[in-house]
Amino acid sequence: MTRLEPLLAEHPFCRDLAPGQISRLAACARERQFAADEVLAREGEEIREFFLIRSGRVALEIFTARRGPLLIQTREAGDFLGWLGLEPHALWVVDARALEVTRVLILPLPCLNQLLEEDPILGYQLLKRFTQGLARHFASMKRQVVNLLHGL
């Protein structure tokens, strides 16, 4: 067992996965810590990594010439950041910036995608969790849109 396996196992995105599935993921994973204001991803850059946030907080921002970065949403400990199932060479459409010291597990997409292709059972599990997370984020954004555009 590598030292990353318990870290993966305790992240909500991997909850209740079988130990074998965890160790397959761990074979791809690495750990990283971002300082406050350090950038995890930048708009226009190719998406190469899938992040599992262990602690800290990440701001999703869109940069505007007149008002600088506009904060749209945050991702917290226990959230994921990134995309599964996109076409290769897809680009980030937001900046992701650590708001405080943030520890993440990084799953590089080439490795992760290969794992999903080779292990459809694990693939289905991960895509299901990804979709559930997206649904939560979209639900939140729809309510933000209502609040902002309709002033409610």
Binding site: R3, L4, L7, R30, E31, R32, Q33, R103
Partner: peptide, 14 residues
Amino acid sequence: GPEERHDQAGASAG
């Protein structure tokens, strides 16, 4: 750099 930081973080988390 990113890689060194990874190792340090890993060590402290290990």
